[in-house]
């Protein structure tokens, strides 16, 4: 099939023809990528540029035409985002949230992955059950948990009271001390399956001869885990953690639906939307949005630089 047809169709002067073939192929490649690039430019690139531009003005959402250039006043300066204690509160909330969620999800995800990896007849059923929280839309999860954690009629308080673990119903979403914990709890419930699946995939890629060799040598199970399994899955786990962290830093849906604009749980995204939509401050809100974007971009770019070096090394 191959060489016959190739040589019969081969032109007289191979080098120039091949390079022109290559060049036409490269042109075609750019043409093929163009639609995707155009779409992304239109819905991501241009709006981002617009946000950056708006952040340098005092625009109001209700009347974008009557805006004036104010330079960096929305950022630094007395009335700027960086001077707003609520912004810093949102930053703190978001960072804490990300730290707690991602660590918990990784540890629990590892445990669940090990469990799913254990040979058993229940494997498929378990995996299906574990996937259920992930399949439920975030808004629905938020509503379900809000109902379960309802201080008067919620089933969680009822159970805890019946077990004697608490003496009065807890105000899970109202009590400033508890609200944050509640948000983390629901997020962990929802996203652990995702981490568990990723870690499970990594576990399954560990070559079985490693384990067999260890068995032959009589290495105890916990040592196998610590010294063989963990190091081998660490790269994959780190990748998953980074993706999850970037997601957690952008959290909006869960917090908005469960505790709306409450200060104790406000994330950066919720803060931006509040400034933008509730207060109609297009300029100021865009500045906050830009700051959030820069934070995420910094982490993303650093990760990519590292990843690219790894990829090019292959």
């Amino acid at each position: 099939m191959t060489s016959q047809t190739l040589t019969s169709a081969a032109p007289a002067r191979p080098s120039t023809a091949e390079s022109s073939l290559q060049r036409s192929r490269q042109r075609m490649a750019w043409l093929l990528v163009a639609p995707a690039l155009v779409v992304l430019l239109a819905i991501a690139g241009l709006p981002l540029a617009r946000t950056l531009w708006l952040s340098l003005t005092d625009a109001q959402l209700s009347d974008l035409s009557t805006r004036q250039f104010v330079g960096l006043a929305n950022y630094i300066g007395d009335a700027g985002v960086l001077a707003d204690p609520e912004w810093w509160g949102a930053v703190k909330n978001t960072l804490w949230f990300s730290l707690l969620s991602v660590s918990l999800e990784t540890v629990l995800g590892l445990a669940v992955a090990l469990m799913l990896n254990h040979p058993s007849r229940l494997k498929t059923l378990l995996r299906a059950a574990v996937l259920v929280p992930w399949a439920i839309p975030t808004v629905v999860s938020a509503k379900m948990w809000t109902w379960m954690l309802h201080d008067q009629f919620g089933v969680i308080n009822a159970m805890l009271l019946a077990l004697g673990l608490i003496h009065q119903p807890l105000a899970w979403t109202a009590d400033p001390d508890l609200a944050f914990t509640t948000i983390v709890l629901v997020d962990v419930w929802k996203t652990t399956p995702f981490m568990a699946l990723l870690i499970l995939a990594a576990l399954q890629m560990v070559p079985s001869d490693c384990y067999e060799a260890a068995k032959v040598d009589g290495v105890p199970k916990w040592s196998v885990f610590l010294n063989i399994t963990l190091p081998l899955i660490t790269p994959a786990v780190l990748v998953a953690m980074i993706f999850r962290t970037l997601d957690a830093l952008r959290v909006f849906d869960l917090i908005y639906v469960m505790t709306s604009n409450s200060r104790t749980t406000k994330s950066m995204s919720v803060y931006v939307r509040e400034q933008l939509i509730d207060f109609q401050l297009a300029g100021y809100g865009s500045a906050a949005a830009t700051l959030l974007f820069l934070m995420i971009a910094l982490i993303t770019v650093s990760y990519m630089a590292l990843a690219r070096r790894r990829m090019e090394g292959h």
């Binding site: 008067q152 009629f153 009065q168 105000a171 009590d175 400033p176």
Partner: peptide, 21 residues
């Protein structure tokens, strides 16, 4: 007043009152 009032809106308060509590 229960501490949970910190997350009560109109309906939550009404729920408690209307249930006789």
């Amino acid at each position: 007043t229960p501490k949970a009032v910190l997350n009560y809106g109109e309906e939550e308060a009404r729920g408690v009152f209307q249930a006789g509590n």
